[in-house]
Amino acid sequence: MPNNIERPRRAQHIVAVGLLVAVFVLLARAVLYIPMHDTGVASSIQDNLQISGVLNPVTAVLLNFRGYDTLLEIAVLVLAIIGVLSLQREGMLASGRLAPFADPALSLLTRILVPMMILIAGYLLWAGEKAPGGAFQAGSILGAAGVLVTLSGHVRPGWLSPAIVKIIIAVGFVVFLVAAIIPMFFDKNLLEYPLHLAKPLIILIETWLTFSIGMILVTMFISSAAPITDDYVRGDAT
């Protein structure tokens, strides 16, 4: 019996590998023909860096030159968490579903690392203006801090109700959107920050984004992490 299954699968497998090798040859040829002289917009970025409001070129591209991409990217992130929540049954955002893992050593680790993570998130947020860092890196560290808190069985603080969590999830995107349309009231286009407002607006956006991204990541983890306990009963699916 296993042989019968094995044989056609092996044949399929060889065909698949052969095809992929062919694809690789084509791709390799394509990448090796890439011209090695500079054809991008690097010089243009450097020229406009002074009026972008930040000194780190990557941050400048992300939040100013191509801020529109980033706006939509955050929308993707918000959308993904909405999708994750829509896969939950009733009682979305219930964070009490993870069985706590009690251990004093883990608890102590959490209490040491979480404040450190907050500090380093803040540091990366600040550094993002002129060095590697920024909202997304800071947000993912906050998210990891949240995951750590969840895993170590610490109780979710009472004020962090599902409604508040949802607001924090959305706030970064909404602030970004508002900041994007503010220039429109001054007869400018979407995301066309006035020169003197560029830096404060970028900082404002990044700060809110950090908290939103952190909350989105941790909610992704909590909502999709399924319970372990045996007394898990299937809720009525919609």
């Binding site: 893992f101 883990l106 680790l109 690392l113 450190m116 993570m117 380093i120 540091y123 990366l124 550094a127 060095a131 590697p132 860092g133 890196q137 560290i141 990891a144 995951v147 750590l148 895993l151 170590s152 372990i228």
Partner: peptide, 20 residues
Amino acid sequence: DVALVLALLAAVTGIAFVKR
């Protein structure tokens, strides 16, 4: 900074493993 971040976060996957 990357090293610092790695130092902070290396534990998270370990703990996620331990939980499961």
